[in-house]
Design a protein around this nucleic acid. Structure first.
Lengths: 219, 219, 219, 219
DNA sequence: AATGAATGAGGCTTCATTCAT
DNA sequence: CATGAATGAAGCCTCATTCAT
């Protein structure tokens, strides 16, 4: 209204955003520890030390909160993984970094990863149909498919269906997450990472030429 | 079990079992079409054309019904897949038949497969902990791990972690199921089967010997 | 299923109907005493001495309960008033009996009448639009308009707009109800009835012929 | 009130009054479009482009705001109708002008009229009793009764109960409003006005003397 | 004087479970 | 054995009101 100082609107927005972020974070915690179905607004509010109504005040409803959580986690994951992948010139390296990055994200953002899986599996339309069905995977699958197509075009990869391979890679990574959820620290993510890299390297690489030497660029 | 006239108790048991089986079947239908969260006893009872109380009468509670569904489907799947796998002498063929059988099961028992996934993801303890977490996978994983160990011992497979490979195989098969749920008939299960067989053949096979000929036993 | 005795279905229906009727009656009582807006399911259930869930069990939701109340009262009112009206051959007598019957209904079915008015005024769509707006009056207005058309055709009534007269008659009767709601027994319904009969007789009758004698058929 | 610089208190009062008037106006708009039950403070504040708290600041509570709306509209209506009525010397003309003025007010102040009806029907005490029941009508009814008494005393009107006639006139005018709310412009207010004037002229006038000529002084 | 944030009560609905018949 | 009826908890949402800034 006056000048110089930050406008009220901005200050409002700042506090508003802080609250929203806090609530989103608590939602992630609760969803990851109690599961999507048990993640009631009451539980989330309790965790945040606020009244239930506060959530309704800052979010249009539970749906918006969940959507926000989803967006938050997806954005975080994409930022953590994709840029580093794209820095790799070769398809084989891209695949390796994608797998390594994805599994590393599970380690650094455990609750986020779990929450993502929970929402994925738990969020339904009122008719019971999944809101995030396989269609939501498409962007990620596209990303992988492009890597595979590049590798095949450049002769680095053998012939296979890029789509099915992409589905398998994503599924395998999710499988690691499921293991991690159950067994916690007993699952050595670095080992899982190495094994999956090897697995999909072997699965995609061209059959060894007769005079081939070392097979793996790195273990 | 076979003779016509049995004691009342047995006849009771027979009817009892028929009722239970009917309810379990309806539960599978409802869970697969409406999702776990929406699968209320009322919906299942309506589908079965019976009263809600009947379910409570035949099952200790919803949990027991769901557990029964789970057992039923797991048993069906095991019967459909495992015997044929064990008929194969070689580890490589065992793996191939396991994958083929598992994906074929998705095709022949769609609702069962979906229900299994729904229960897997949806069933929780009152504290929100998954009832069927990765631990429930262990029997299946053991089965696969044994195949891999056999193959490695017999020199058919390269060196890799049997456990991680087992997790990857199961996850990849589940990935096909998720695709199938979303895209239905547009997902060609036979193609998926072939691709996964190829994928894991390549992933497990020893690096091609210099003078090896055909790599795939079957296309 | 057997024979002779009433089928289970019927017995069920009987008890079912009794409960529904009880709940509808309690809803009428609560709506008439506390007003539509305050007529919560909790209050109605408390009055009926049952749990809130019972209402949800017997009715699809609050909407269906209210609709049932509305239908119940409308049907009662129609049965109480219309047949006697149609027994009258002359339009003038029809009008008189209609007014007398409508006001008598207020006396014999006070809570019903009040509940009807409350629902009429209070029930809204989620967007705030009245569910029972003037359109719902049309059947009743038609009935009155036909009386007026008959009277004009037979020369008993003077020239006027049947529609506007019909609206005025209905409104005047509702006005008596509003008075009754506020002042209770202090409003003499018989007197109100006589006055309205006179009023609308005078309003509809042809200008007195020069040699006219008695004006009212009944005082 | 007129001079430019006044004490702070007065200037405050001026702004205060402006704010209150603005809020009252917005309340009228919202009530008339969304209905009383849906007219939340949030909606009214949004319409006014202010914060919800402002309303609480300027009004003791929602009740006071509504009461203010009621007073505002009643005052407007009284100012629009009563003075012109009182200019008429004869009772018959007074009645005519009262009806004409009241219906004209519906045309010129649609939202006000609707809001008035909504408040009338919707506002309740915490116990569910109407706040504005028929008692609130008394001033208006008195005004009409005085007209009728005058007309009867001066021999212009026939014998009838002034009170019941007054109730009928008010009810009939309200009936026109209800029609207008539902059917909007399709209700010709001028026609409604003429018909009601005729109706109540006929209803109140002395039976035609044997040698009388024209019945209506004016249409 | 105004605001946005927070509260807490209350409403409707769904649902697994219990129980008398 | 089976049923329909009833329960009570829990969930999400709306809203008038209060309060610190």
């Amino acid at each position: 209204m006056t000048s110089g100082t930050r406008s009220k609107g901005t200050r409002s927005s700042f506090l508003e955003e802080a609250r929203r972020a806090q609530i989103v974070q608590c939602a992630i915690d609760i969803i990851s520890t109690h599961g999507y179905a048990q993640a009631s607004l009451a539980l989330i509010a309790e965790r945040a030390g606020i009244s239930k109504g506060v959530i309704s005040y800052h979010f249009a409803g539970k749906d918006e909160l969940i959507a926000q959580v989803y967006t938050e986690v997806m954005t975080l994951a994409a930022k953590a993984v994709l840029p580093r992948v794209e820095q790799q010139p070769g398809a084989s390296d891209k695949l390796r970094v994608y797998i390594e990055g994805s599994i590393a994200f599970i380690g650094t953002h455990g609750p986020h990863s779990i929450a993502l899986l929970e929402i994925w599996n738990g969020l339904r339309t009122p008719q019971g149909k999944p809101v995030f069905d396989a269609r939501s995977y498409e962007p990620g699958l596209d990303f992988l498919q492009n890597i595979f197509r590049q590798g095949q075009a450049e002769g680095e990869f053998r012939r296979f269906s890029p789509r099915h391979m992409a589905v398998a890679v994503r599924s395998a990574i999710d499988g690691v997450l499921v293991q991690r959820i159950t067994y916690g620290d007993k699952v050595d993510l670095e080992e899982s990472s190495r094994e999956l890299v090897d697995l999909f390297h072997a699965a995609t690489a061209k059959p060894a030429a007769p005079t081939r030497g070392s097979r793996r660029p790195r273990a």
